[in-house]
Amino acid sequence: TELRLDINGREIKVDGADKETLKELLKLAEKNNDEKAIRIIRHLLER
């Protein structure tokens, strides 16, 4: 399955993203107070 998050109005594919990319996405999600995106990205970073 493909995991996509809508961050800042942009749909971004997050599964398969490297750790650096995920960290950047996490910063974006935190800036937007997007709890769902934050939770998902943190979960991916823990893998």
Rank of each mutant, 00 (worst) to 15 (best):
L5C: 05
L3F: 07
N33I: 04
K31W: 13
E11K: 05
I40E: 05
A29Y: 03
D15A: 08
V14L: 10
R4G: 06
D15P: 04
D18T: 06
L3V: 15
L22H: 00
D6M: 15
K19W: 04
L22E: 00
L5H: 02
N33P: 02
G9D: 05
L45M: 05
T21P: 01
H43G: 10
L26G: 00
K36D: 10
D18M: 04
L3E: 07
D6G: 03
A17P: 03
T21G: 08
K36Q: 10
L26P: 00
E2H: 08
I41T: 00
K13E: 13
R4T: 15
G16M: 14
A17H: 09
L3K: 02
L28D: 07
E35W: 12
A29T: 01
K36H: 13
D15K: 06
G9A: 02
D15L: 09
N32E: 14
L44R: 02
E20P: 05
D18C: 04
V14I: 09
E2P: 06
E35C: 13
R47D: 15
E2G: 07
D6E: 15
E2D: 12
H43R: 13
I12N: 02
L28V: 11
A29F: 06
E30D: 05
L25Q: 01
L45Q: 02
K13M: 14
R10G: 10
L22T: 00
E11I: 11
T21W: 06
A17S: 14
E20F: 07
L26M: 08
K13H: 12
N32S: 14
R47I: 14
E35L: 14
E11N: 06
G16P: 15
L26K: 01
A37T: 05
L5K: 03
L25E: 01
R42A: 07
N8K: 04
E11M: 04
A17M: 09
A17V: 08
R4I: 15
L26F: 04
L45A: 01
A17T: 13
K31I: 11
D6P: 04
K23S: 08
R10E: 15
A37P: 01
I7R: 01
N32A: 15
I7D: 04
E35T: 12
R47C: 06
N32M: 14
L5I: 14
V14T: 03
V14W: 04
I38K: 04
K13W: 15
E11Y: 08
D18Q: 03
T21N: 07
I12H: 14
I38P: 00
L44K: 02
I7Q: 02
K19H: 09
L45W: 02
K27R: 11
E20K: 10
A17D: 13
T1P: 08
I12K: 01
E30Y: 12
K19I: 14
I41G: 00
E24L: 12
L28I: 10
K36L: 11
L5D: 03
E46G: 12
K36R: 09
A17G: 10
G9H: 04
G16D: 08
I7T: 03
N8W: 04
R10K: 14
A37S: 09
I41Y: 02
R4F: 14
N33Y: 07
L45N: 00
R47V: 15
E30C: 07
D15Q: 07
L5N: 02
K31S: 11
R39L: 12
I40G: 02
L22V: 01
E20I: 07
L5T: 02
N8Y: 05
D34Q: 04
E11A: 03
L22K: 00
R4Q: 11
D15Y: 07
R42F: 07
R39T: 11
A37F: 05
L26S: 01
L44H: 10
E24R: 11
K19M: 13
I41D: 00
I7N: 03
H43N: 09
R39K: 09
L44T: 04
N32V: 14
E20Q: 08
E24N: 10
L22N: 00
E24D: 09
K13N: 13
R42P: 00
E2A: 05
I41R: 00
R4H: 13
I12C: 04
I40H: 04
G16Q: 12
I40K: 04
D34R: 01
G9Y: 05
L25R: 01
R47M: 15
L28R: 05
N32D: 11
R47L: 15
K13I: 15
V14S: 02
T21F: 10
N8T: 03
V14A: 04
I38M: 10
E30K: 11
D15F: 06
L3N: 05
V14D: 02
T21E: 07
G16H: 09
L26H: 01
I38T: 06
R42T: 13
K36M: 11
N33K: 09
L26T: 00
I41A: 00
D6L: 14
K36C: 05
I38N: 01
I7F: 13
R4M: 14
L26C: 02
K13A: 11
K19C: 05
K27E: 11
R10P: 07
I41E: 00
E35N: 08
E46P: 02
L45V: 03
A17N: 14
L45F: 03
T21Y: 09
E35G: 07
E2N: 06
D15R: 05
L28P: 00
V14M: 06
E46Q: 09
L45D: 00
N8I: 04
E35S: 11
E20L: 04
I40S: 04
N32L: 15
H43V: 12
K19R: 13
G9E: 03
L45R: 00
R39V: 13
K23G: 06
K36G: 09
K19A: 09
D18E: 04
L44Q: 06
K13Q: 12
E24A: 13
D6I: 15
T1Q: 10
A29M: 04
H43Y: 14
T1V: 08
L45P: 00
E11S: 06
L22Q: 00
E46K: 10
A29W: 01
A29G: 01
E24K: 13
E30G: 04
R4Y: 14
D34L: 06
I7M: 06
N8R: 02
A37M: 05
K36V: 11
R10A: 14
K36Y: 12
E20R: 06
L5F: 11
L25K: 01
D18F: 03
L5R: 01
K23D: 05
I12Q: 05
L5V: 12
E11D: 08
R42Q: 13
R10Q: 15
T21I: 10
T1M: 08
T21L: 07
A37K: 01
N8L: 07
K31R: 12
A37I: 06
L3G: 05
K23Q: 10
R47G: 15
E46I: 08
N32I: 12
A17E: 12
D6K: 12
